[in-house]
């Protein structure tokens, strides 16, 4: 367990014993990661803000029945994902759009988000984005959780309500597909 996870776990225990400040501290600590994840899933800033508020308000209302958990961040991600699934289903029904596909989000990437973006040329960035966009939305989501938030497979499984082997396959197949595209680009480039 990392130092941050330990810190969160301690705050969680204090929250369970009824301390409001501990829950507010968890809100502050995880806000950026939750906001970004929510935005990645839905692209809707207002919806994400509301969902995070609702999520934490609900935790506070139900504090007496809340269980002990191992990794707070993964738990919050999973809970936010549930909220967003419910919200987007409702929204889609209200707007008489297509029947909502069960729990799938359009996850999109832009090149500024990648750490080494500054060191790669535009052509390579475009290739990488194209490769990523060919992946299924679940693969894209799993990659985000793995390489942006650093969750291990086991926690990604928890967040996305899949089993660990499915996550392993999702990520592996995604990496294979990306490798194929990058290989072509190296072959062409030199």
């Amino acid at each position: 367990m990392t130092a941050d996870e330990q810190h969160s776990a301690q705050l969680w225990e204090r929250f369970r014993s009824g301390e409001a400040a501990a829950l507010a501290a968890l809100f502050e600590l995880h806000y950026e990661a939750l906001f970004n994840y929510g935005l990645k899933l839905t692209g809707d800033e207002e919806l994400v803000k509301d969902s995070i508020q609702n999520l934490f308000q609900k935790l506070w209302r139900r504090r007496e029945g809340v269980r002990a958990i191992q990794v707070v961040k993964a738990y919050l991600f999973k809970a936010l994902r549930h909220h967003l699934v419910d919200e987007t289903k409702q929204l889609k029904q209200q707007r008489y759009l297509f029947p909502a596909p069960a729990d799938s989000f359009e996850v999109t990437y832009s090149h500024e988000e990648f750490l080494i973006a500054e060191q790669t040329d535009a052509e390579q960035q475009a290739l990488l984005l194209a490769a990523i966009n060919q992946l299924s939305s679940r693969q894209r989501e799993a990659l985000y959780l793995r390489f942006f938030d650093g969750f291990p497979y086991e926690r990604i499984a928890e967040v996305m309500s899949l089993n660990t082997q499915s996550v392993r396959n999702l990520v592996f197949n995604a990496l294979k597909a990306i490798r194929k595209v990058m290989k072509v680009s190296w072959a062409l480039g030199g």
Binding site: L23, F27, E32, K49, Q53, L115, I116, L128, F148, R179
Partner: peptide, 29 residues
Amino acid sequence: TILRQLVGRPQPVSEALKQEELAKFRRYL
């Protein structure tokens, strides 16, 4: 090399937005 290209950073959330949302939640508490 392949994996390094995929490592990303969540985009920074503006401090003002975060503080506003935190204040809202504190009011609720």
